[in-house]
Structure formats: structure tokens, C-alpha cells
Nucleic acid binder design. Sequence first.
DNA 1: AAAATTGACTTGCTTTTTACAAGTTAAATA
DNA 2: TATTTAACTTGTAAAAAGCAAGTCAATTTT
Lengths: 142, 142
Amino acid sequence: MVDKKSKNWTGCPVRFGMSQFGDKWSFLIIRDIMFKGRRYYNEFLEAGEGISTNILANRLADLEFNGLVSKHQDTIKRSKYIYRLTEKGIALMPMMLSMIDWSERYDEQTEVPAEFIKKLRESPEALQKELLEQLTKDSTNG
Amino acid sequence: MVDKKSKNWTGCPVRFGMSQFGDKWSFLIIRDIMFKGRRYYNEFLEAGEGISTNILANRLADLEFNGLVSKHQDTIKRSKYIYRLTEKGIALMPMMLSMIDWSERYDEQTEVPAEFIKKLRESPEALQKELLEQLTKDSTNG
DNA sequence: AAAATTGACTTGCTTTTTACAAGTTAAATA
DNA sequence: TATTTAACTTGTAAAAAGCAAGTCAATTTT
């Protein structure tokens, strides 16, 4: 959990960030939506890192509560819920890309595609625009 | 703790990042060194968020183990230890600055100085260079 | 030189979170 | 009508965090 109760987590920007999305699983969920096109509870579960169902539900609720993620019923299949990044969530993209850039440098076993990293370093604006379109286009649902 | 045992945390850059610095306290320690000029155990303790002594020791050890932070005896007062960011740690600056930029936007009670945020948005290179000099100059010790 | 203090932890114990397995519920198929 | 799918919830054990107190070496003070 990312702290809710406790004192005052506003003010300092790093502390504020931590209170909004500052735990491992939140980052991974944001990654899944932002870069992997995942949008359903099920898809997050199958992400590979093995998050537990209760933790996932909890983190999605936190992220929604903090306004980073929105939750809507799927219009076609009403038993499903679509999770999306809000504008506030999408605005984390530069931070996420910086992290990716860093990890590519320091993880010897990085799996970041060479093409992606090249684009990130040579024309970050273009890459960001591309990713943003992916996030926004959104296949009619919700 | 930021996971040590468990499977394979390399590969995915977000997952890798989480394994290297992916918890609240680690971020706050990095902030303290990077932006507040703190370098001693004591100074981290007094940071205001109230980290426990054992957790602080543990996180510093993790960060050192991961090569983000270095630890050296203070040359003047040998009972003290100086903690610094390594190059690898310093390389997180763009990510930290992106987070600060984001928080300034979304935290209504942000305390980021207007001057700082202006510089960050108008001439990020210059700001980064300034901050870097602060980190590198380093008052003769260690 | 002895006593007190500083600085950086470590230890023990309680509380809070996380992880894992199993169960529930509504909606959509078969 | 009976299954299956999708998204959770609940219960419980294990791990991590938080808190207070204690250790220990290097200063400083008396």
C-alpha cells in the first residue's frame, strides 16, 4: 500500500509521488497499461510478475482513488471492466521513459528493444507521441 | 525491502528499476542526497518523514549493494560515514526531475519553489548541470 | 585519564502488509 | 439450465515495517 492515513504527504514532490504511485506493483500496473496495452484485471494478473489477486484489486482501487486510472464497464461485455490511464496517469510517461532509459543503461540483461531505445534517445518527442496515440485511440469501448 | 531473492528482476526495465530503487524510502533517500545535500545517516534520519533507524540502515545497504550509493569514512571525523550517489545513482536525475515536474502539476499543495519549476521547464539542461555540480563538487571529504 | 557524548547502527518485539489458497457473485456462454 | 468467465473478497500464514532500547567505536568534555 502507498500510505493513505499518516500525516501529510503533500508538499514535497517526491513524497507526493510516493503517496500516489510509490510502490512496486503500482509501477508495474502503470507500465502494463502504458506500454503493453493491457486494460483488464485478468491481463494484469497474467503479467508475469505474479501479483496476488487481492493486492491487484487493492492497487487498482488506490490508483483509481488517486485519479491515475479510470475504471469503466466494458460496453460489449458488461461483466468486464476496462482500466485506463487518466490524463494524470498518462502524464507520468516522461518519468517512466526516463526510468526505461536508465534501466537500459544499467541492466546488463535488459530486454528493451534496441529500436525502442534508439527512438527514445534520438527522437523522444516522436516516440512519446506514438505511445500517446496508442493510449488515446482506444478501441471504441468504455 | 525491494526484493532480492525472488525470480528474475532483470529484463523489463520497469521491473529492473523497481528491484534497484523501487520503494518509498529509497526514493526519499535518493531525493535527500540529490536535492538536499544530505550525506550522513543522521541527516537522513532527520529528514522529516520519520524513517526508522533499522529501515534506514537497511535501505542504505541495499542502495550501496545495488551500486547507486557509495559509503566512505569521513576523513576528518572518522566516526562518520559519507553517503554519496554514484554515477549510476546520479543518472536517475532525469527520472527524479520528471517526477518533480509531475507532482508540481498535480499536488495542489506543492512546495516546489516556483523558480525551480520554471527553470526545470524552461532550461532543464542548465538546471541539471547546476544540480550535478552540487553533487560533484563535494567538500574535499571521503 | 576517566566520563560523557556522538554517530551509526543492531536487536527484540509488536503491528501492519503481503502472499497464497479458496470462496463468492454477476454476467455471459454452452 | 448448467458451465464458464471475470472480477473480486475472505481467511490465514509469512514477511516486512515500525518502535524502543541497547551496543560499540570514535570523539569530546571534564
